[in-house]
Nucleic acid binder design. Structure first.
Length: 896
RNA sequence: GCCGUCUUAGCUCAGUGGUAGAGCACUCGCUUCACACGCGAUAGGUCAGAAGUUCAAAUCUUCUAGACGGCACCA
């Protein structure tokens, strides 16, 4: 069989279709029903999203595990799906409606709006799932779920109703984070901070009733003064002691408000007097509660001033109102000063609008019990176990300890509408359905709560709701739930450990009694070339699809897997190119192995037969088995980068650079035994690589002769032949062969030293020379046994073996391990000065090491306290260096 | 303010107590019949700085500097 001259990723990537059509991704492809299960749920991507590098990274890591375990014979499920992304979808549909029809959601009504959102989802929501097929993700599409699927929605209602009934969900009036652009409340975790250096601190004079004096307050948000219902000072602040209890004549608002004393006030900050606006500031709200102050809400849902702000301000945007308030204060002579002030503003994570703290009635999940559940799981079972573990467990625990109640209602139409109904008196009835609610209400007419739940509320159930759990809706147990929960591992980004991971732990434990997963692989962030997180505004993003087109999916995957687990990575095209070259290298190595292989075929390795094979064969097999064992070990602890490094070095250095070169003549001459053996080694190595480079390995594997059932995992007997269902090599220790490794090491050392002499002496590769080697009889036997390969790879005409060197003065020399020496007579070619310098350099290097060794060995406490084998190893090394130095010194003298 | 991470060859990064590693880039040499996305051979690092623990520190402890992340506060 003749392969194309270079690997073409596009062709190989066509393999996905076959895999999917044959059902290879479903756990049921494994016919052994008693096989252990292995499961992963995908962190559901936002249904409006398209694939970014973070996905590509996480999906690669999940797919590597999934393919690895599937090949090991597990009943393996990687479950795909998307979440409904409340705000994002809502925004897309609103925008579409405005653009296409010039209408607002209110114009078409809720039902129609939701219908259009579903249309939008059907039409555009599969972008990312299609992109996942390109990635090679071996997810079971037959089990794909969406957080708003009927079953999952029943699960959401079940959990809500249960939590409500036991008092863990409540409705209450609180200061919440309000986004005036999205017109919805946000949870604390959806609010980010932004520091602005151009902020201002405004000092306003408030007239004190019955006097001509004023009291100055400092504020960053003067417009909220319209909603002030008190001014507070510290009770122990002597400056203001006599003002406590007096009234302020609040300018512009024409109201009187009291001066109160509260410990909250820091006398040292600003003027020591604080305006109190209970409806627009969380701290002021608490002060208001303590003092029974009125809560005056100033703004509407869009952040515009309402009637409570007074006729002069009603309808103004909050920032326009600020300007106007300041202008009025100035006119009235009540603006004392404006200071520059660095301010930190709360920002809506999605739309970057400044969040307005606002008093509002919302639904909350009480976090006391939830926190205790998560902490108990963490402290009891150390679950989740984070990889890498160092920082995450502590951060996670600390965060849990300070957890506040979770705002779960959202003022949107797209999502899970809250299963709460109200009668005319405002009594609330929480139930699975309207009918049940009405029953509870004694048959009264009811109106359902207009809000929907936070998308993360449904995502929090993702470890069990996709397996069929519906709770009060009926199913609390299903075959999939039994088999696949707990899942084995969650692979996700650092940024959603709190937002999602913690909630999965709480909700899964509470509602199923099981943990959602034991391990969490925390990925780092893929940064742009500028070292900053990729973002649209920075325009430093790298599109994975472009990378797939440019370098191939396999190269992109293995590059992403080569990053140390959890570390951030600065994107670098040069590195991905390394792996594109790697793919091509493997392609060409296979191409070579298939030359003249007409009578060859893949076979299992037989220890008895192997033991009589040549050292090079036993060596490569030993290296393959050791690499296999190490790759498994690395993957067990999610050390992907270690596995990649092992594979890279096995393929490139051991297999291509040495083994193929050593066997070249035999292969090209059509030796069927040699071809069969090298193909068998290659076949196992391809299997080992498959989880990382699925397309390349499948493409090549299919071309190997005789990849028969005998090599397959017995669990997949009736499946089509595919590498993805072949057995994953464990690394059979019976083939570990230290003797062969030593032998080949000696051969490699000799060849390398000869090449070094050739290069340093500037001798053309076309010139062949005689190589003399002196050494003990063991070494001579080894070199004699590998004479042909040594001659070929060292480009030598003759190999002369003896127990001591006997060569002309005009020779270049080098020392080998084990007291051996190599010499090359170079009459007419040698530059004596250069040779002296070359030998002196070698002595100098040895001397550096010798000095260090002498230092250590002459240290009495080292010899006394260090392990004996350590000391002995250094002594042996010292003896060898001394022997080699002596030989080199003698070589220099022999040149004179 | 609190907590945490990072600082290793020109670049991007591995390496958790025992002689500093990789890829790319650089230098030299190769149309060697699988591969120039290649082959061969070199060169390049007082492991951010300081102190400490230890026979032994890139690795453990403390401090300092710089970069970054999370949390809290912010009238």
């Amino acid at each position: 069989m003749e392969l194309a001259k270079a690997f073409d990723p596009k062709t190989a990537e066509g393999r996905y279709k076959t895999w999917e059509e044959n059902g290879f991704f479903a756990p049921e492809i494994n016919e052994n029903e008693s096989a252990p299960s292995y499961s992963i749920v995908i962190p559901p991507p936002n249904v409006t999203g398209s694939l970014h590098m973070g996905h590509a990274l996480q999906h690669t890591l999940m797919d590597v595990l999934t393919r690895w375990k599937r090949m090991q014979g597990f009943r393996t499920l990687w479950l795909p799906g998307t979440d409904h992304a409340g705000i994002s979808v809502q925004r897309k549909v609103v925008e579409q409606l405005r653009k296409d029809e010039g209408k607002s959601p209110l114009d078409i009504g809720r039902d129609e709006f939701v219908r259009r959102a579903w249309d939008w989802k059907e039409k555009y929501g599969n972008t990312i799932t299609e992109q996942m097929r390109r990635e090679g993700a071996s997810v079971d599409w037959s089990r794909q779920r969406f957080t708003m699927d009927e079953d999952l929605s029943v699960a959401v209602r079940s959990v809500f109703v249960s939590l409500y009934e036991e008092g863990n969900i409540y409705r209450g009036l609180r200061i919440v984070n309000w986004c005036p652009k999205d017109k919805t409340v946000l949870s604390d975790l959806e609010v980010k901070e932004e520091t602005r250096k151009d902020g201002k601190l405004y000092h306003l004079r408030y007239p004190i009733k019955g006097t001509s004096a004023t009291l100055t307050v400092a504020t960053t948000r003067p417009e909220t003064m319209l909603g002030d219902t008190a001014v507070a000072v510290n009770p122990s602040d002597e400056r203001y002691a006599d003002l406590i209890g007096k009234m302020i004549e609040l300018p512009l608002a024409n109201r009187e408000i009291p001066i109160i004393a509260d410990d909250y006030v820091d006398a040292e900050f600003g003027t020591g007097a604080v305006k109190i606006t209970p409806a627009h500031d969380p701290n002021d709200y608490l002060v208001g509660e303590r003092h029974g102050l009125e809560q005056l809400l100033l703004m509407d849902e869009a952040g515009r001033m309402n009637a409570a702000a007074g006729a002069d301000f009603e309808g103004l945007d909050r920032f326009e109102a600020r300007e106007k308030v300041i202008a009025r204060f100035e006119e009235l002579g009540l603006l004392e000063k404006i200071e520059d002030y660095e301010i930190t503003l709360p920002i809506c994570e999605r739309c970057k609008t400044i969040v307005e703290p606002i008093l509002s009635e919302q639904w909350f999940v009480k976090m006391d019990e939830m926190r205790d559940i998560a902490l108990a799981v963490m402290r009891g079972d150390s679950v989740p176990h984070f990889f890498p573990q160092v920082p995450h467990e502590k951060v996670y625990t600390t965060w849990l300890e300070g957890l506040k109640d979770w705002t779960i209602s959202r003022q949107l139409w797209w999502g899970h509408q809250i299963p709460a109904w109200y009668d005319d008196e405002g009594n609330v009835f929480v139930a699975m359905t309207e009918a049940e609610a009405r029953e509870k209400a004694g048959g009264k007419e009811l109106r359902q709560d207009q809000d929907v739940l936070d998308t993360w509320f449904s995502s929090g159930l993702w470890a069990f709701s996709p397996f069929g759990w519906t709770g009060k809706g009926g199913v609390t147990d299903s075959p999939d739930l039994d088999k696949f929960l707990p899942t084995d591992v969650l692979v996700t980004g650092r940024d959603i450990i709190f937002l999602w991971v913690s909630r999965m732990v709480m909700l899964t434990k509470k509602f199923t009694g099981k943990i959602p997963f034991s391990d969490v692989v925390v990925t780092g962030t893929v940064l742009g070339k500028d070292g900053k997180p990729m973002s649209k505004s920075r325009n430093n993003g790298v599109d994975p699809i472009e990378m797939f087109d440019k370098f191939g999916v396999d190269a992109t995957r293995i590059y992403l897997a080569s990053i140390a687990t959890g570390a951030d990575i600065k994107w670098n095209d040069l590195l991905i190119e390394t792996y594109r070259n790697f793919a091509n290298k493997i392609w060409n190595a296979t191409r070579f192995c298939l030359l003249n292989s007409d009578n060859a075929s893949i076979r299992p390795f037989d220890p008895a037969a192997v033991s009589s094979m040549a050292a090079a064969d036993r060596w490569v097999l030993s290296r393959l088995m050791r690499t296999s064992q190490a790759v498994n070990k690395a993957l067990e602890t999610y050390q992907y980068h270690e596995a990649v490094s092992l594979l890279y070095h096995f393929f490139w250095d051991d297999f291509c650079d040495w083994y193929i070169e050593l066997k070249k003549d035999e292969i090209t001459s059509g030796d069927a035994e040699a071809s069969s053996f090298i193909l068998s080694v290659l076949e196992q190595a391809l299997r080992l690589l498959h989880p990382f480079m699925p397309y390349l390995t499948e493409e090549l594997w299919q071309k190997l002769p005789g990849v028969g059932n005998s090599l397959h995992n017995p669990a997949y007997v009736s499946a089509e032949q595919t590498i993805m269902l072949a057995d994953f090599p464990k690394g059979d220790e019976r083939f570990f062969d230290s003797a062969a490794e030593n032998e080949v090491s000696a051969v490699i050392e000799l060849i390398t030293k000869v090449r070094n002499i050739r290069a340093e002496m500037n001798i053309s590769p076309s010139i062949k020379f005689v190589v003399h080697v002196a050494g003990n009889s063991d070494l001579r036997d080894i070199f004699a046994a590998n004479e042909e390969q040594i001659l070929k790879l060292a480009r030598a005409s003759e190999l002369v073996l003896s127990d001591s060197l006997s060569v002309p003065k005009a020779s270049a020399k080098a020392v080998l391990s084990g007291g051996a020496e190599v010499a090359i007579p170079l009459e007419g070619l040698i530059d004596f000065a250069k040779e002296r310098e070359r030998l002196r350099n070698q002595i100098a290097k040895l001397n550096t090491e010798l000095e260090r060794l002498n230092g250590q060995l002459s240290n009495a406490s080292f010899v006394e306290k260090a392990p004996a084998e350590k000391v002995e190893a250094l002594r042996e090394r010292k003896a060898e260096i001394e022997q080699q130095t002596a030989a080199l010194t003698q070589n220099i003298e022999s040149l004179d």
